[in-house]
Amino acid sequence: MSVKTFKIWYLTHKWTSLICTAFMLLLCITGLPLIFHHEIEHLLGDAIEAPALPAGTPLTSLDRVVAAAQQAMPDDKPLFVSWDPDEPELVFVSAAKTATETQDFRFVALDARTAHILKTDSSDQLDFMRVMFRLHVDLFAGLPGMLFLGFMGLLFVVAIITGVAVYGPLMRKLDFGTVRKQRSTRIKWLDLHNMLGIVTLVWALVVGGTGVINTWADLIFKYWQHDQLAQMVAPYAGQPVPQNLGSLQAAVETAHRTVPGSTPRFVAFPGTNFSSPHHYAVFMRGDTPLTSRLLQPVLVDAVTAELTDTRKLPWYAATLLVSQPLHFGDYGGLPLQVIWALLDIVTIVVLGSGLYLWLARRRSNPVEQRIAELEREAAVTPALATRSAAE
């Protein structure tokens, strides 16, 4: 690698790291409790649990569930019905003043067997986990905040790649993993920064890359709405919006018959962004480790409960859905969560040490000293070659 090329890699690594470090520290710190969000909710007493009933107690009708939820939220319109993948006896109904609201909404958690209300809550009631989640996802700034964090994530990925390019020439005279403890504090932290950074390289790229993809979630599903969803509901264009909706239970049963061997993950009511004014959109998930992360929308006529259309999600939406559990490490149980947490802590050390190296910089920057050495080597080598030829 020429001296000029090394300088370009080094300066790119330096400035992309400086720009994104503070925000990446925030994301790593807020992401740590999110890895264990189920466990923390149980510890804080915020977890929702259905009461124990005799084994084999059948589920009640979804129409009864929605009716109970509407009694608890009489001034709101139902938006979604969703299920906890790990606890099928829990069902959640969210509602808002208008069908297109996504930020300010209320939800009711119910027992899917009895339609008894277990908890009512609102999106504007902030507890510890919600604050961590909103800071991690959008900085309480909605879509602009998500896109801003996505840009910071891109800079983080660039910083990782350029850091690898800088690592080789910088550390070529030292054994892998060397930390020069006898040198100054700054040199020790530089060695530690380089060693931990290269060890966590793959994990940081995976989590950073999937994090960037997740920040595009709203844009990806908006494109899906204008692409596939628009094609699926085209036959209903110009028809009046139904005033009275049919049975939600019948719509879900239609989806079960259409996609056998799957279960509903959530249902979008007519008029929401995930459906049309004329349809229940039932999003079905598979029963394997991979297909359980993927969704297949089934559009069912909201009046007659007849099938309108169903299509597998396109590659861009499937990529988003697969990246989400990979980002938080929640597809391999507690052991993988612990590994993700440990790697997250190491990344915090890498980011913090990089910030320290910048704040404690001096004129005798070790990297810049290495650049000077390379320049001297580049100047000496041609001279030696000329001298040898003359002799």
Rank of each mutant, 00 (worst) to 15 (best):
I8Q: 09
S17A: 14
S17V: 01
L18S: 09
A22W: 01
L25M: 13
C28A: 15
L34D: 05
I40T: 08
P54Y: 11
A67T: 04
Q70V: 00
Q71F: 00
P74L: 01
K77P: 00
V81R: 04
S82Q: 06
W83D: 04
W83C: 07
V93N: 07
S94H: 03
S94M: 05
A96L: 04
A96S: 12
T98W: 02
T102M: 14
F105E: 00
R106P: 00
V108K: 06
A112Q: 08
T114V: 10
H116L: 03
K119I: 02
T120G: 07
D121V: 02
F133I: 00
H136K: 05
F140Y: 09
G142H: 07
G142W: 05
P144M: 08
G145M: 07
M146L: 09
M146K: 14
L147S: 04
L154D: 00
L155A: 10
V158W: 03
I161M: 10
I161F: 14
T162Y: 04
T162E: 06
P169W: 09
G177T: 00
T178R: 15
R180H: 10
R180G: 05
R183A: 15
R186F: 03
G197W: 06
I198V: 14
V199G: 03
V202Q: 04
W203S: 07
V207R: 04
G208V: 02
G209D: 01
T210C: 06
V212H: 06
V212Q: 07
I213P: 08
N214C: 10
M232W: 12
Q239K: 15
P242S: 09
G246N: 05
L248Q: 08
Q249T: 12
T254K: 10
P260V: 02
G261V: 01
G286I: 01
G286M: 03
S292A: 11
R293K: 14
Q296F: 02
E306R: 15
T310C: 07
K312E: 14
L321Y: 07
P325V: 08
L326E: 00
L326I: 13
H327W: 04
F328H: 09
G332V: 03
L334M: 14
P335C: 11
V346L: 14
I348H: 06
G354Q: 02
R363W: 11
R363E: 12
R363Q: 13
Q369G: 12
R370N: 11
E373A: 12
T381K: 15
A390T: 07
